[in-house]
């Protein structure tokens, strides 16, 4: 508990931490601005396939849709922001040399790893809450309410506005879970490294490469896809389908939890044996 308090203190005393919140805000603003100025043509483009046969009228470009678009693009970047803190947790301290001093204290290394994991988790939760606030509520303020359309590659889904808010709530909860998996992976990479750039870049590299694999339509990759965590971190989208594929989401959640536990356990086992030479 003491350790966790100290870890949180360190995280939130650092300017870097707030950069993440700034980046989220900035990207959100940029997308909102782009949607304000050019959203109509974007919608026109996206709805090409549908517009051939149907006329859709009303406030298509409403806050719910804009929030979805923001989430879709930001959830690629948020792993970077999570890694920025989680990847720095051990490696960063190794780099500035404080890990040495920290580990000469009568504190169990496993407890330190757990405290750092919990601190990363809390940071992730706050990041997602901030994202929810700025992406959803600000978009609703700017673009108003409305029914939401969700374009999937093989389906056009429409959700009634009265039926959306709970989906966002669930989606954000799921996003926290997904990003916690990223955080735990960053922490593991962080335990291997003596400077924080390595784990941050590696986290991004892994996420990007696996996301590409997850999205490639090749028979070979189809075999491994269900085992990649990147296939599952976009499970929040399931809440915007109708009907919600609960069993798939549940399976994805379970896989993400398993990944997280595996990452943390590996981190603890490795870190417990690691010689601190930095």
């Amino acid at each position: 508990m003491q350790l966790l308090r100290i870890e949180l203190y360190k995280i939130f005393k650092r300017p870097r931490t707030y950069i993440s919140f700034g980046i989220i805000t900035a990207i959100t603003f940029v997308i909102q601005l782009a949607m304000l100025s050019d959203g109509k043509s974007f919608i026109g483009f996206a709805l090409q396939g549908i517009n051939e046969q149907f006329d859709i009228h009303g406030n298509i470009l409403n806050g719910y849709l804009v929030a979805y678009i923001i989430l879709q693009s930001l959830l690629i970047h948020i792993p970077l922001l999570v890694a920025l803190v989680a990847g720095d947790m051990l490696a960063g301290e190794a780099n500035i040399g404080t890990l040495r001093l920290l580990l000469t204290r009568p504190v169990r290394r496993s407890q330190l790893v757990l405290a750092k994991f919990y601190a990363s988790f809390i940071y992730t939760v706050l990041l997602i809450i901030w994202l929810a606030f700025i992406a959803l509520f600000l978009s609703l303020l700017l673009f108003g309410k409305g029914d939401m359309i969700n374009l999937k590659s093989d389906a056009f889904v429409m959700l009634l506005q009265s039926d959306i808010l709970w989906r966002y709530a669930m989606a954000f909860v799921f996003a926290v879970l997904a990003m916690t998996t990223i955080a735990s992976m960053s922490l593991l990479l962080s335990a291997f490294a003596d400077n924080s750039i390595g784990p941050i870049i590696s986290t991004m590299g892994i996420v990007v490469v696996l996301t590409i694999l997850s999205n490639l339509e090749l028979p070979l990759f189809n075999l491994i896809k269900p085992y990649l965590f990147t296939t599952h971190i976009i499970g929040w989208k399931g809440f915007f389908d109708d009907p919600v594929p609960y069993s798939a989401i549940l399976r994805s959640s379970a896989i993400l939890v398993l990944y997280t536990i595996a990452f943390i356990t590996t981190t603890i086992i490795y870190f417990n044996k690691k010689d601190i030479r930095s």
Binding site: G49, Q53, D154, L223
Partner: peptide
């Protein structure tokens, strides 16, 4: 009668648990 509808997957980044 309706024409088929399809968007490239890369664009939509669908969530498909199973291939």
């Amino acid at each position: 009668n309706l024409k088929d509808y399809k968007l490239p997957k890369g664009v939509t980044m669908d969530y498909n648990d199973q291939p």
